[in-house]
C-alpha cells in the first residue's frame, strides 16, 4: 500500500485528488475474510465440523491473499502456511487440553464436545497447510 503523497501535485485545491497515490479500487479478498471469519466462528462455537474447516480455510486463504495483494508479503503461500500452522497449533492445544486421544481402537477419540472442536480445528489447520504446500509447489513449477 503506497501511501506517499505526490507533493508537487497538491498545489491546487483539487490537486490532492487529481494526482497522488494509487488507491486500490477493487479487491477480491475483503468479502472472503469477513465471510470466512463468520463461518469459522459459527463452526467453533456451535460445534459444526464442516463450518470450522471451510471457515478457517476461507479466512486464512483470504488473509494470505490480501497480504500479498497489499505487498506486505512476497509469497502468499508461505503466509498461508504460517496461518495454517497457527490454527493447527490452537486445535492441538484444545484437543489435548480437553482429553482428546489419538490411537487405540477408535483411532481418534473425542471424549467431549470441546475436544471435538479442537479436532475440527486440527483438520482445518492441516488442510490449510496442505493447500499451502501444493500451492507453493505449483507456483515453483510455473
Amino acid at each position: 500500500m503506497s501511501k506517499e503523497r505526490v507533493e508537487d501535485g497538491a498545489a491546487s485545491s483539487e490537486g490532492n485528488r487529481a494526482v497522488t497515490d494509487h488507491k486500490p479500487s477493487a479487491s477480491l479478498w475483503p468479502m472472503f475474510i469477513a465471510f470466512g471469519l463468520a463461518i469459522a466462528e459459527v463452526g467453533v462455537v456451535v460445534g459444526v465440523f464442516v463450518f470450522t474447516v471451510i471457515g478457517f480455510l476461507m479466512f486464512t486463504g483470504a488473509v494470505a491473499g490480501i497480504l500479498a495483494e497489499a505487498g506486505y508479503v512476497e509469497r502468499p503461500w508461505v503466509a498461508l502456511g504460517v496461518l495454517g500452522t497457527v490454527v493447527l497449533a490452537l486445535g492441538i492445544a484444545v484437543f489435548g487440553a480437553f482429553g482428546g486421544v489419538v490411537g487405540g481402537t477408535e483411532l481418534v477419540a473425542v471424549p467431549n464436545a470441546v475436544a471435538y472442536r479442537g479436532l475440527s480445528m486440527i483438520s482445518a489447520g492441516a488442510l490449510t497447510i496442505l493447500t499451502a504446500g501444493v500451492g507453493s509447489i505449483r507456483s515453483e513449477l510455473t
Binding site: 490532492n16 485528488r17 497522488t20 486500490p24 479487491s27 469477513a34 465471510f35
Partner: peptide
C-alpha cells in the same frame, strides 16, 4: 480532502462483516 480512507481494504472488510452478522 482525502483520496479515500486510510485503509481501503479494511474498510471493505468492515462492511462485509455486517451481512453475515
Amino acid at each position: 480532502g482525502a483520496d479515500d480512507m486510510a485503509f481501503p481494504r479494511i474498510n471493505a472488510i468492515a462492511f462485509w462483516l455486517l451481512p453475515p452478522g
